[in-house]
Simulated scan of single mutants.
Amino acid sequence: MAEEIRVSVEFIEKELPLAPPLYVSVFFMTQAMGRQATAAEVAQKLDILESDVLKAWKYWKGRGCGLWKEEKKARALPSARPSYSAAEVAVSLKNEGVKELFSYAEQKLGKCLSHHDMVLLLGLHDWLGLPVDVIELLLNYCVSLDKRGMHYIEKVGISWAEEGIDTVEKAAEFIEMRRRGYREIMREFGQGNRLPSQAEEAYMKKWIREYKLPMEIIKTACQRTVLRTGGVSFPYADSILRHWQKAGVRTIEDVAALDAAHTAKKEKAPETKKAAAQPKKNRFINYTQREWDESEWEEMERRERDQW
């Protein structure tokens, strides 16, 4: 280790009061061990998780106080969930937030957590970076769907992290959209008693989040889809909604105006189209029919009688 650590008075006065205590420990331990120290080595010295060291380095880099070579600064969290040992799980329990999370999970899931359960929950917090209160909402949401399996919970957690759902507000918005929005759409398709598939969910998410269409407009498109196709067709409904979104539709009145414009356009179609549908005349029917008067019929009958 280095014999002494030099920091400025300005750093002590301005940075140390703002930084989390753990990040301060990482800062000085990294200084003491030198630039060649790895995150794993610093974590071992401080008896903390390697990911905590990486988070601390990221924090100090953001504060303009990076201490490490460029390749160290470029390090990121692993792409796959770490495999935490029993000792690492025990260390995580020193964090009151993690301890409360495990207790809450046992209460919601109605069981004592196994080591594997703890590893998955710890991964949501430590690896994916989801706050404890967000994970608690995640657990509550999954249990409400009667999905208590840890792999399912982790799968939903990963999708939340990928979508940037990292606050209670964002999580609540997602849950409301899923419970109310998705359910209403599925009901309009006559599918209210089943959960949507992944592909169906992608369509609904696009309508609500990307197109930003009101629910009454989405439901109207679903109704038209069922009437026109006789069944459930998310691609067909998407074609309707994509057209409406491009046309600036926001209300039912907008839909009615669009329908009226379409009907008016059809009624103004050239008469030549109707004429083209008529059968063509040919040499067998292209003549003017002769009209016979009563005297001619009588004369014809008289000649026929004379022949007999």
Rank of each mutant, 00 (worst) to 15 (best):
K274L: 14
M1S: 12
K265M: 00
K45F: 03
T167V: 11
W207N: 05
E299L: 14
S8M: 07
Y84T: 11
Y211Q: 10
F11V: 12
G149F: 02
R228D: 14
V53S: 03
V53W: 04
Y23D: 13
E154F: 11
D254H: 06
E106Q: 11
E176M: 03
Q36E: 15
K108S: 02
A105D: 02
I48S: 01
T229L: 06
T30N: 00
E4W: 10
M186S: 01
E188G: 07
A276H: 08
R303V: 08
W57E: 15
W127H: 14
A87I: 12
Y182Q: 00
K147T: 02
P214F: 06
L22W: 01
A171E: 13
T251A: 08
D126P: 12
S8R: 08
N95E: 12
F11Q: 12
I175A: 07
E301S: 08
L93I: 07
K219N: 10
E173G: 01
A171C: 15
T167W: 14
V249I: 10
I240L: 03
G129R: 12
R187K: 09
V7S: 15
K281D: 08
G181R: 01
E169I: 10
Q278Y: 05
L109Q: 00
Y287T: 04
K111R: 11
L109G: 00
E106S: 09
E88I: 09
G192D: 05
E70P: 14
E271W: 14
K281I: 05
D126A: 14
K281V: 06
E88Y: 07
V226G: 05
A87G: 08
L22C: 00
G64M: 13
G66C: 11
I217H: 07
M300G: 13
R187A: 10
W60M: 08
T220Y: 12
E176F: 05
S295A: 13
R209V: 10
C112M: 11
W292A: 13
E301G: 03
A86I: 12
K155C: 04
S114G: 11
W60S: 10
K55I: 09
K69C: 15
F189Q: 02
L139S: 06
A40V: 12
E173F: 05
G181N: 03
V9K: 11
R228C: 10
L258Q: 04
V249F: 04
A74Q: 15
K274F: 13
W57A: 12
T38S: 15
Y152M: 04
I48V: 05
L128N: 11
N286R: 02
Q36I: 11
S103Y: 04
R242G: 11
Y236F: 04
G248C: 04
I208R: 05
K94L: 14
A269D: 10
L54Q: 13
F28E: 02
D238T: 01
Q307H: 11
E96P: 07
L139R: 06
D293G: 07
E88P: 12
R283T: 04
W68G: 13
S25Y: 00
E299N: 14
M186K: 02
A199F: 00
